[in-house]
Design a protein around this nucleic acid. Structure first.
Lengths: 171, 171
DNA sequence: TTGGAAAGTCAACAAGGCTGACATAAACTG
DNA sequence: CAGTTTATGTCAGCCTTGTTGACTTTCCAA
């Protein structure tokens, strides 16, 4: 198929550009499920060797992405409790992958940075993940990629969408 | 922006249709992360009320999708251990949402079906999820949706891709 | 100077992954 | 028929990562 004919079934007359059966929507849902598994598979393998988990990867990713970010900001982006993040962050700091610096203007805040070791691990993880994404993009083609990104942005919660857009500015 | 100009930076001459900087790939990765959160948010809220989790939702989804499927098949699709699945399946059976029938040809097998109650919960969950997907699809447009699906299929592991394609046949 | 925000810590708990071991019944095979 | 393999279920125990609640320390700002 590839979304060409949609076989039998009644079709609501007129009105919408996009005719979306529940089954077609279910296919999209299943695609998200299976794809997300692939999306995390490569980093997960690497993390398992080092006895880290996905939570560590997420922290490394966003600290790399926004060096000097505060704990509170990270909390909002990741959408977890401070206790949960703190556990992960503590091990990363103990292992010398993340550095926490007291804020200059507001000394209550902690600003987070990756150390050389942290950058190195982040690079290995994100390269594994990018490799798969690059291959997928190449197979699907530029127009598919644009559509992919558009739909993903629409799926996000508005709150998360805001974080997503804010990260863009820093690039 | 929306992927129009990509600002400064060197560009490898010729060769590839698709020019993908690491930063562009990182944006795709972040989009997947944030979107997946939105993707699961609505069912998660409903499940929390009933003290079920995502694992229950997945089981309900795939049993609904392939009524009469065996435990082993479900195991392969979900990619978890039988102990993990069994815990979830047991509670669903105890709560009368799933029915397990001894196989006719092979009496070692258990064939799984949703009861009326199971169908009802599955419907509530999937309607919440489909509502978001439908809105996202509508905003993004049909071409974006096609691209979205193409890229997701490419991201999957070949093994998972096989399961994904097999499910299609049953539709 | 005092209230409250930011951050950290401790304790306890739950979901849902995992491994390993073991039991049963059924099917298959020599 | 005896032995092996397969499908399933179950018990016990462990790990990660999420949660809530309570409490402390630091320190900015009104």
């Amino acid at each position: 198929m590839a979304d060409s004919g949609m076989g039998a079934g009644p079709r609501p007359s007129g009105e919408s550009l996009l005719f979306l059966t529940d089954d077609q929507l279910r296919r999209g849902i299943e695609a998200m499920f299976f794809a997300y598994r692939g999306f995390t598979a490569d980093p997960d393998r690497i993390l398992a060797e080092k006895s880290y988990g996905r939570a560590h990867h997420r922290a490394l990713h966003f600290v790399h992405r926004s060096p000097g970010t505060t704990v509170n900001n990270l909390l909002n982006i990741l959408g977890v409790t401070k206790q949960s993040l703190n556990r992960v962050l503590r091990t990363l700091i103990e292992d010398g992958l993340v550095q926490s610096k007291v804020g200059v203007q507001d000394r209550r805040e902690r600003h987070l940075f990756l150390t050389e070791g942290g950058e190195a691990l982040e690079k290995v993880l994100s390269e594994a993940q990018r490799k798969r994404m690059r291959a997928a993009y190449r197979e699907a083609g530029p127009e598919a990629v644009a559509g992919f990104r558009q739909v993903l942005q629409q799926i996000m919660d508005p709150e998360m969408r805001k974080h997503f857009d804010q990260l863009k500015d820093g690039m």
